[in-house]
Design a protein around this nucleic acid. Structure first.
Lengths: 328, 328
DNA sequence: TGCGTAAGATAAAACCTTTTAGCAAATATA
DNA sequence: TATATTTGCTAAAAGGTTTTATCTTACGCA
């Protein structure tokens, strides 16, 4: 294996100084009054020998690593997988790459990773946080590391956020079941988590059913139990309350709902879920969706973070993206 | 923002040399004959002030970055998302973190990223390669960078691979339709790609139908067209050939198959797909699955790569993992 | 001729580690 | 007692950049 070229190899071979090569490579030739002739000579040679600067050395010197940490709860959830996909691509277009971590069920590890990423001089973070991370994120902010939260803000963390219009989405979703599907008794299935997006969705549901004086029928699923228990709870919720419609707060809840409906042959058939899923149109009964605008969320997240990294803005941005209802 | 501590801050504050601190921090105190008393004093102080070594400087000096590049075709495919999840966790347990890239439809970008990751002194690569990447991967190997391929080997790249037992899986899947489901005319739906795993699956299908003298009925879908066209092709394939059973070479093909069946109300109802999907049990008709053992694949991939990075082994490993049939 | 300034380039410090080679004192050996 | 060895620690180089401060030469102008 031949040794990698360094900038001083280039300088020596060309009989110029390292400084000069560095200036030229970083587009400062004009500014530093390097003659066009020399600039061209260096550039040509660099191209010819295919020299690539050592990014580590560069980062060490500049303090910028050109990488962004992406922490999501669960990359195998299609919502996060899709958003990660978009974020990765957009970040790349800005010259950043993504160091990612899926922190499913392991907050301790998430905390360690935030520290680890910080130690690696990550330029910024994109996080869909779990609840215990406030203190770690606040530490980042204290150290002036840009952080953008998405999907769910944290009440005790004051930073940029990009979230969907959860209240309105859930409200419209419930109205859809009421008005288009003619549902009479609509339940809302959510998780025990107190994540803000879940609160918003509950609020939207409540607003809709309050309007027409329907009972509030809410089930909070605890995911610390096995699937069979979850399905039984869903069955009980649906049949005890004689539901004819259900709004699920997120796609995996809807999938569990469908499993329960199938397993116990439940009658409920007016379903809608937050978050789209490729198969919602294929199942029986079909599941309508309040679809989050993934592309737009990713765009805003990356835009804000890159602006922050470049120090282009100091105000805190809170972006809210509308959802789209997919009727089925 | 207070400046980060460096090792020389520690050394100065303690009145010892940087070298000593470094030795102690790297567990070489004994080997380098540092007294226990001093070692303890340094360790205690480091803990007290919560000093964390600068990883960039460390990497620059040692040439090891403790990071692994993970390149997959499409992170939003549940198969890859799940495997990425496992790989990330396992790598973390070995002290590595994952820099990931989803290279959907953009081979040029994939090539650039391999170069970029290489420039960042990534310690090793885990790649589910697309076909044009052979030359780039061979370049990595030429530079002695460890690479493990999974899901599909490349015929012209000689390196470690972890793949599923595709032939046997498809063979068993086809037999299942024939014997358990009593299918009479089974089609095989695959992609136009010549990726090796697809070839293997085709081979398994052929072996099964050849055995009993059934016609070979194979459709290769080209994904350079819009979804409606894909669905029509599937419809034509299924109805023209009067299929009563279909083996799909991968999960997204199965989902398109289901869409076509639904959209055009096709009669075929004996379905099986390579790769599991949460909703395959919820759709009508249900889809059986030849499920790849994701956890085991991830384990092998990480084990082999870490061994390579540590120079623990020089032989090339080719691991084949059996699949599990999920009957529905 | 003498002086100021612009042009064109560079030496050396800085970023923060790890590691080689070596030093001084204490102890062991003869 | 004189020498060899061990103990305990450290100076300095190396890794590859960026950037500040400076240096030399040429030129314009009085």
């Amino acid at each position: 294996m031949k040794k990698r070229l360094s900038i001083s190899d280039i300088a020596n071979n060309l009989g110029v100084s390292v400084t000069t090569v560095s200036f030229i490579l970083n587009g400062k030739a004009k500014e530093k009054r390097i003659s066009d002739a020399l600039a061209k000579r260096v550039l040509d040679y660099v191209k010819k020998v295919d020299y690539k600067p050592n990014q580590l050395a560069k980062s060490l010197r500049t303090g910028k690593s050109k990488s962004i940490g992406l922490l999501v709860e669960d990359i195998s959830n299609p919502f996060f997988a899709n958003i990660a996909d978009h974020i990765e691509k957009l970040a790349y277009d800005h010259g950043y790459h993504i160091i990612y971590c899926s922190m499913k069920n392991d907050e301790q590890r998430a905390k360690e990773l935030i520290q680890l990423f910080y130690d690696r001089q990550i330029d910024g973070f994109i996080i869909a946080p779990t609840e215990g991370l406030s203190v770690d994120i606040n530490n980042l902010l204290k150290s002036s590391v840009p952080v953008v939260l998405f999907d769910r803000p944290l009440s005790d963390v004051e930073t940029h956020t990009v979230v969907s219009e959860n209240v309105e989405g859930a409200y419209q979703g419930t109205l859809f079941l009421l008005e288009q599907k003619n549902a009479k008794r609509i339940g809302f299935v959510t998780t025990v988590s107190t994540q803000s997006q879940m609160k918003g969705r509950l609020e939207g549901y409540m607003k809709a059913v309050d309007n027409i004086g329907m009972d509030l029928l809410v089930k909070k699923i605890n995911y610390d139990q096995n699937e069979d228990d979850v399905l039984e709870q869903l069955r009980d919720f649906i049949s005890d309350n004689k539901l004819d419609g259900v709004l699920f707060a997120t796609n995996y809840l809807a999938i569990n709902g469908l499993k329960a409906i199938k397993k116990f042959d439940l009658a409920v058939d007016k379903l809608i879920s937050f978050d789209e899923n490729t198969t919602f149109g294929l199942v029986d009964p079909p599941v309508s969706a309040i679809s989050q605008n993934i592309q737009e969320i990713a765009q805003e997240v990356v835009r804000i973070l890159v602006n922050q990294i470049n120090g282009k803005s100091d105000k805190i941005e809170k972006v809210v993206i509308p959802c789209t209802l997919i009727a089925r």
